[in-house]
């Protein structure tokens, strides 16, 4: 499984697929890999992204305007896999597009496309029975979110069914860049480590080299989402080089 957590922190790059179009998304992702992203989260645009702030909401709207679908995202995954064998790659989606395709079919196609795993934003462990079965069958890792509000009991439950890595949300709230990383995050990671030996990625709100480095002090990986999506939005026509430059600036301090 191409998740490598030796050189910490790993940069996990989230991209809303199909913004501004799928061909550009492909170029952006290849550029991101080239410039130091270790894991790619392929965001599937959804009409009702309740866990996302304005930046990813708008990106999803743009992607849906020309009909970006889960099926197309899976096809994009196989194209990227052809170019890079070593990058970690997971699908990041809301549940309904996956349900519409069918959980069993989705997991098969995802594995076939060379994806390593799946994260479903609005699927807590309590509801994850079918997902866990189908993902295991197809050798996909199941990444779950933990939040500062998760009780120890929940952290334990989540750790039990997680594989690959665990994604710790840095604060209560929707996705989006923030000036300061809250205190919540390191405390949460500390609590979580009592229940798991899996690597922990921290995300939500990371947008500067300082924040990236700070997260590296206590986590194995840092997820950068809205900041990348914003770089895409602000650099129409030269998205890929802009994202590459941004990612290089984030990982520059890493030695």
């Amino acid at each position: 499984m191409p998740f490598h957590f030796e050189n910490k922190p790993v940069l996990v790059a989230y991209v809303t697929c199909g913004d501004p179009d799928l061909a550009t998304t492909r170029d952006i992702i290849l550029a991101a890999i080239e410039s130091g992203a270790g894991i790619i989260e392929l965001g599937v645009p959804f009409s009702d992204p309740v866990a996302d702030g304005p930046v990813i909401q708008k990106a999803s709207e743009r992607a849906l305007k020309h009909g970006t679908s889960l099926e197309q995202v899976l096809k994009l995954a196989s194209e990227i896999r052809e170019h890079s064998q070593s990058v970690g790659m997971i699908v990041f989606s809301y549940l309904n597009p996956i349900l519409k395709m069918g959980m069993s079919k989705f997991c098969k196609v995802a594995r076939h496309a060379g994806l390593d795993g799946v994260l479903i934003t609005d699927l807590p462990v309590e509801e994850a029975g079918e997902y866990l079965r189908e993902a295991r069958k197809n050798d996909l890792v199941t990444v779950f979110l933990v939040a500062p509000t998760s009780t120890d009991q929940r952290l334990k439950q989540i750790a039990t069914v997680s594989t690959g890595f665990i994604y710790a949300i840095s604060r209560t709230g929707v996705t989006g860049a923030r000036q300061q990383m809250p205190e919540d995050a390191s405390g949460l990671v500390k609590r979580l480590r009592r229940f798991t030996k899996l690597p922990v990625a921290v995300g939500f709100g990371i947008s500067t080299p300082e924040q990236f480095a700070a997260v590296g002090q206590y986590a194995d990986a840092a997820v950068v989402g809205s900041a990348i999506v914003q770089a895409i939005e602000r650099n129409r026509g030269h998205e890929a080089p802009a994202v590459a430059e941004f990612i290089r600036s984030l990982v520059a301090r890493k030695s």
């Binding site: 866990a51 549940l95 807590p124």
Partner: peptide, 21 residues
């Protein structure tokens, strides 16, 4: 899987981000 309540036949359940659980 962890037993779920709040089902009406196949329907219902609790499909929200972890933060709200």
């Amino acid at each position: 899987p962890v037993p779920v309540t709040g089902r009406f036949g196949a329907y219902g359940g609790r499909y929200v981000p972890e933060t709200l659980m």
